[in-house]
């Protein structure tokens, strides 16, 4: 199974990788199927569930148009899905908040975790849980797909952009002073 790659990252030098555009007929069929399922609810509830179950943190759901600026080093946890629907789910947050999350989950001091692989692993696992939850709902709706192993991107200044023909939805959450932005990009698969 080939998973779509929507981006690559270099500090101060964004690099975009494009994926071929879907045929209009397939796209419209996908739109119909996606309209039948509440992707927004699944992602929102999935994120809320991961935070409350694994971290006992109650996140606030913000308007998706909220402007979010991540100060300092940023981290993105990504999980791809491929099959009848292809896409990627990216969880964006600051490295400082990621370390706080990892510290809470593992019972360790966040200061000891900032540069550690544990933080990458924790955010990767969170992405896997959010992606796995969405993938289950997609499969139940007939959009069979497989999930990739999670990956992590870290950097000071980079951005991820959608290619043409790919739907993009953003979800914004807040816990205390920390923001979490989740980007879902999808396009029809084979």
């Amino acid at each position: 199974m080939i998973f779509p790659v929507f981006f690559a990252v270099l500090n101060n030098a964004p690099l975009f990788i494009l994926i071929g555009l879907p045929a209009p007929a397939i796209m419209s069929r996908l739109m119909v199927n996606l309209a039948d399922i509440s992707v927004r609810d699944y992602v929102t509830n999935g994120v809320k569930d991961v935070f409350s179950t694994m971290l006992s943190m109650k996140v606030e759901v913000l308007d998706p148009t909220t402007t979010v600026t991540f100060e300092g080093e940023k981290m993105v946890g990504s999980v791809g899905f491929a099959g009848k629907v292809m896409g990627v789910i990216n969880i964006n947050l600051t490295c400082a908040f990621a370390a706080q999350i990892a510290g809470t989950m593992l019972g360790m001091d966040p200061k000891d975790l900032l540069a550690g692989t544990e933080v990458n692993d924790v955010i990767g696992e969170m992405s896997n849980m959010v992606g796995g939850n969405l993938k289950s709902h997609l499969c139940d709706a007939g959009l069979t797909c497989a999930l990739s192993i999670p990956s992590i991107t870290r950097g000071i200044k980079f951005q991820i952009e959608s290619i043409e023909g790919t739907s993009h939805e953003r979800f914004v959450f807040k816990y205390q002073d920390h923001f979490v932005a989740v980007d879902l990009r999808m396009k029809p698969g084979e």
């Binding site: 993938k135 709902h137 139940d140 999930l147």
Partner: peptide, 9 residues
């Protein structure tokens, strides 16, 4: 242990 709770899974 699974991250996927779908019927098929």
């Amino acid at each position: 242990l699974t991250a996927e709770s779908g019927r098929e899974n």
